[in-house]
């Protein structure tokens, strides 16, 4: 009814608050990031390309993206089940378990890293049962997937939970009364409602996994070309005082971040326009 344009209305503090916010954001985030881009721009395009597509770099992309994709997929499947179970079923200890889902957000990544490494090592609580079966998890590429699954776990669950809560039982009852089986109801009625949130959660988990460092380095084994993730490659270039190489790789990572941000925004917009209420409103970050 009252579209508003431009400042200068009743409430005070518009210029002050916007000014402070933009200043802080610029000083802490935007200027430093543009410093990175500036540094990289001193490189010739060919030199940049050489570094960004070096053998070790390419291998690190493969490891990072492959493990992230796999971990996000695992989280999509199990996260859907967990969210469904937490919303729809009642069982003892449900509230505690519900609260515990956020543990990966709260637990420092280094702690997660050393703990998972210890658990999945050959003599660890889990590793000792897997090693005899020929499954080497810790200090090998599968370890990366385990760490990233832990890190990304809350994203899918927390994005889906409010959406499942919002599904009115009447919708399912209507489907059932029209003769749909439980499977048909799920496939035709529930799945379309859940899909945007599931994709959003998947993308959030994936995007977080790509940049993850702390939890992975302890469990990955960090062998170049095999289990070396891109953030670690940046660090090792820095340790060899190859600032230029580190910068080039960082720019690649930054570009990917922007793309992911764009994709997540698009997905949330899609979810919001398709299902009225913002399906991703409660999305944790």
């Amino acid at each position: 009814m009252r579209p508003l344009f431009g400042p200068g209305r009743l409430l005070p503090g518009f210029r002050l608050s916007l000014g402070c916010a933009v200043l802080y954001l610029s000083l802490i985030v935007l200027l430093p990031l543009s410093g990175l881009v500036f540094k990289a721009s001193q490189l010739s395009l060919a030199a940049f390309w050489d570094i960004a597509s070096g053998e070790r770099a390419l291998a690190s992309y493969r490891v990072t993206f492959g493990a992230s994709l796999l971990a996000a997929s695992i989280n999509a499947v199990f996260g859907l089940i967990v969210a469904w179970v937490l919303v729809r079923y009642s069982f003892p200890g449900k509230r505690v378990i519900d609260a515990l889902v956020d543990l990966p957000f709260a637990l420092p990544t280094a702690v997660a890293g050393i703990t998972l490494a210890t658990l999945y090592a050959g003599n660890g609580w889990i590793g000792r049962y897997l090693e005899p079966l020929g499954l080497k998890i810790a200090f090998a590429p599968p370890g990366i997937v385990v760490a990233l699954t832990f890190i990304g776990l809350p994203f899918v669950v927390r994005t889906l939970q409010p959406v499942i809560e919002d599904i009115e039982p009447e919708v399912e009852e209507a489907a059932a009364s029209l003769g749909a089986s439980r499977l048909q109801t799920f496939v035709r009625v529930l799945w379309p409602a859940l899909l945007p949130a599931l994709l959003t959660g998947f993308t959030l988990a994936f995007s977080r996994s790509i940049g993850e460092y702390g939890s992975v380095i302890f469990i990955a084994g960090n062998m170049p070309l095999i289990s070396e993730i891109t953030p670690l490659l940046i660090i090792s270039k820095l340790e060899q005082y190859d600032v230029v190489g580190a910068t080039a790789l960082a720019v690649v990572m930054l570009l990917i971040s922007f793309v992911m941000l764009f994709v997540v925004n698009g997905l949330q917009w899609w979810a919001a326009t398709r299902h009225g209420t913002g399906a991703a409103d409660g999305a944790p970050r």
């Binding site: 508003l4 344009f5 954001l25 460092y213 953030p231 960082a250 941000l261 970050r285």
Partner: peptide, 29 residues
Amino acid sequence: KFEFRGKSLLITLIDLPFAVSPVVVGLVF
């Protein structure tokens, strides 16, 4: 509480630190 041009861009930029790898952040500084 206010409407202004560039608001959705500002919201997106506030999200940016979530998307950037911590290692890149360290390198930037």
